[in-house]
Amino acid sequence: MSERIKVLKTYKIFIDGKFPRTESGRYYQTKNNGIPIANICMSSRKDMKNAVAAARKAFLGWSNRTAYNRSQILYRIAEMLETRKSQFLEELVLQGWTNKNAELEIYKTIDRIIYFAGWADKINQVFGSVNPVATSHFNFTMLEPMGVVGLITNEETPLLAIASCIIPAIVSGNTVVVIASEKAPLSALTFAEVISNSDVPPGVVNILSGSKKELSPHIYSHMDVNAIGDFSNLTNDEIKLTAVENLKRIRSFGASEISNDNFDSPYVIKDFMEAKTTWHPIESGFANSNSY
């Protein structure tokens, strides 16, 4: 009997809760030891624009969900990933991982998502403050999400990286546009299917595959992106300079940071949040109120 011809899946990109092909019509093949694994979209600047627009549109709704609700949705992502372990294992192995390393990466990813899911309704209890001002005001500081966050993943740990950059950013209410691993994009694009099946509203997470060299400058210079989380170690100063135009907040992560257990920390969440302080008068016959 002749060997069955494999179906080479085209992994599509993920924008606004849908799985379109790249508008550019460009594709590349990922290979392992010279054998083609799958067809991958080579996303364009226009895809990036669409993704940012979707993320912006989703921001108000997502950031206004209750923290409890976001926490549950993130936990749901971990549940969905747990049940689809075998597909991720197969894809990682297909992309050159050993069985053991692939398994470790998957478990670490699931556990990390659960860790961060729990922070949704705790981050402001730890990092917010009530400030004892010397006037008759109730004054408090809370952290808020920054808005649309652009994320560039690493190449070393494609599944762990995609989860590690997305989850800490969206747990607080940000929406994200992610540039996936270029050499091993399968995990990221299958992770999009998990997101899509986990009650995450459309547009909260958008994932593009393609050339980091081509796409990174577009996300750094996009005027409607509020912050960048760069896990790639690839971005040069010239590209980073373009982020100054709208004073994006930039957080660069070292390659080893993701694999480190210390990554499980609320400070990563805080990196993509902004402190807002509110003043409210207190009616009082006693407090001494200054004129200004």
């Binding site: 403050s129 400030n131 001002v133 004054n139 402190a275 302080t277 509110t278 003043w279 200004y292």
Partner: peptide
Amino acid sequence: GVIWANTYNKFDPTSPFGGY
């Protein structure tokens, strides 16, 4: 970064100040 409700231009050393 700073919102004043029914007041304005109040400052205090305990109160964080800064922008989005």
